[in-house]
């Protein structure tokens, strides 16, 4: 362990950490929005659209993120899509995670007991009110734990962005290791940063989860 090297590279590492968090945040938000839209479209009673969305989801889930990122960054310009490395990284993370988020939201909708919807129908609630007041809240609550889980997975996928030269944490670390031949220090510092990020995420996730499910927690009460 060499404190001088670590100290010298601290600004680069911190800036890399910032880029990692930024790419992860923007990519995750994009993925959540896109995934939610896909899940909503999936519910429309239009079979061809469902087949199309299913094909897209399977294609994204069935190929490595690295391949998708290359296709987007290196292949994009051939179809007129020129993105900076960082922008491509964000969009890539968004597209990649949207397939998983779409499945999470779809599962959330499926988890709403049909009886709750029938109760809304039986009092004459409109489909719109039923969706906004009954189905959607219940579906989102059910989706919170898998969303937190996917966000954690996604935070670790950000390392792949280093391959297309996004100056995120992994990239800075590799630079440091190559320039100073201090592989162990670099990897150790990187592990600390990622652990901090993920620990913070899962703590926040647990709090959100506790908050949205608190009132639904089954107390020990007679059935």
């Amino acid at each position: 362990m060499n404190p001088d090297v670590l100290l010298r590279y601290a600004p680069a590492l911190i800036s890399g950490f910032g880029v990692t968090v930024l790419c992860w945040g923007v990519g995750g938000a994009l993925g959540l929005i896109l995934g939610f839209v896909i899940a909503l479209l999936y519910r429309l009673p239009f079979a061809p659209l469902r087949y199309l969305l299913r094909a897209v989801i399977e294609a994204v889930r069935g190929t490595p993120f690295l391949v998708q990122l290359f296709l987007l960054y290196a292949g994009g310009p051939y179809i007129g899509l020129k993105l900076s490395a960082t922008a491509a990284g964000m969009v890539g993370l968004g597209l990649y995670s949207s397939a998983y988020f779409a499945e999470i939201f779809r599962g959330g909708f499926a988890a709403v007991p049909v009886g709750q919807i029938e109760a809304a129908m039986s009092v004459g609630m409109s489909p719109r009110d039923t969706m906004l007041r009954v189905t959607l809240p219940a579906a989102l609550i059910a989706a919170v734990p898998p969303i937190v889980n996917m966000l954690i997975v996604l935070s670790k996928e950000t390392v792949v962005l280093s391959i297309i030269t996004v100056p995120e944490l992994m990239y800075q670390m590799q630079t440091m290791a190559a320039e100073t031949f201090t592989a162990f220090d670099a990897i150790f510092a990187m592990a600390v940063f990622y652990w901090l990020l993920i620990e913070a995420t899962s703590r926040l996730g647990r709090r959100v989860e506790a908050r949205v499910t608190a009132f639904m927690a089954q107390e020990a009460s007679p059935a």
């Binding site: 007991p113 009886g115 709750q116 029938e118 109760a119 809304a120 039986s122 009092v123 004459g124 609630m125 409109s126 009110d129 007041r133 009954v134 809240p137 219940a138 609550i141 009132f215 639904m216």
Partner: peptide, 26 residues
């Protein structure tokens, strides 16, 4: 009015809101 075997209350609403919600919406 309909009452179901498994109650079918909306779990994310308090007892009061379960009753008040249809009054407001419908």
């Amino acid at each position: 009015g309909m009452v179901f075997q498994h109650f079918n209350l909306w779990p994310h609403m308090s007892a009061l809101n379960n009753v008040a919600e249809p009054l407001k919406r419908v």
